[in-house]
Amino acid sequence: MNKFRAGGIVVAAAALVALANSPALAGTNATSWGQSKKETCSASSVGTFEAEGEWFHVKDVCEDHMSAVIKVDVAPYKSDGGYDFTIWNPGGNGTTKSVNKKYDEGTGVCIQAGLGEYSSGEWGLWGAWSCGKA
């Protein structure tokens, strides 16, 4: 094998490794835990953003007769506590609601989990915001 062909193979392999490790190709997941009003539960809800496929999941993790909810803020981010939309899971303890969206690669997505009364829309006990990228 001549040295130019061998050198070309090494350069091509290095380029593929660099491309595979490129941040533009790798999304970042996000997870937020809602606070609980019940002493026996460490959290009321858990919200996740799954970068691969742009899936949102809202799981109710406490039998507190409240619904799980997440706020979602997609870049460009809103100021003053704003957000783009909410996802409610009124199904009760142990249930998960999943919603699929479509975003351009590299789009920032932040979520914040909490609990609420689905029928009235009242909510609170928010966990920390957690951010990822599509």
Rank of each mutant, 00 (worst) to 15 (best):
M1K: 04
N2T: 03
K3E: 05
K3L: 03
F4V: 00
R5T: 01
G8D: 00
G8Q: 01
A13Q: 04
A13G: 04
A14Y: 03
V17G: 07
A18H: 00
G27S: 10
A30M: 09
T31M: 04
G34R: 04
Q35A: 02
Q35L: 07
Q35G: 04
S36E: 01
S36R: 01
K37E: 07
K38V: 15
C41L: 13
S42R: 12
A43Y: 14
V46G: 07
F49D: 14
A51Y: 14
E52I: 11
E52L: 10
G53P: 13
E54A: 10
E54N: 12
W55N: 15
F56D: 07
H57A: 11
D64V: 09
H65T: 14
H65K: 15
S67C: 02
A68S: 00
A68I: 01
I70W: 09
K71P: 06
D73N: 12
A75G: 07
A75K: 08
A75Q: 06
P76Y: 07
D80W: 00
G81M: 02
Y83I: 02
D84M: 00
T86H: 07
I87F: 06
W88F: 02
G91C: 06
G92S: 02
T96G: 13
K97Q: 15
N100K: 15
K101C: 05
K102E: 12
Y103D: 12
Y103P: 13
G108T: 10
V109E: 08
C110D: 07
C110F: 09
C110T: 08
Q112V: 14
A113F: 05
A113S: 09
G121C: 07
E122I: 11
W123I: 12
W123H: 15
G124P: 10
G127F: 12
W129F: 12
S130H: 11
S130W: 10
A134D: 11
A134W: 09
A134L: 10
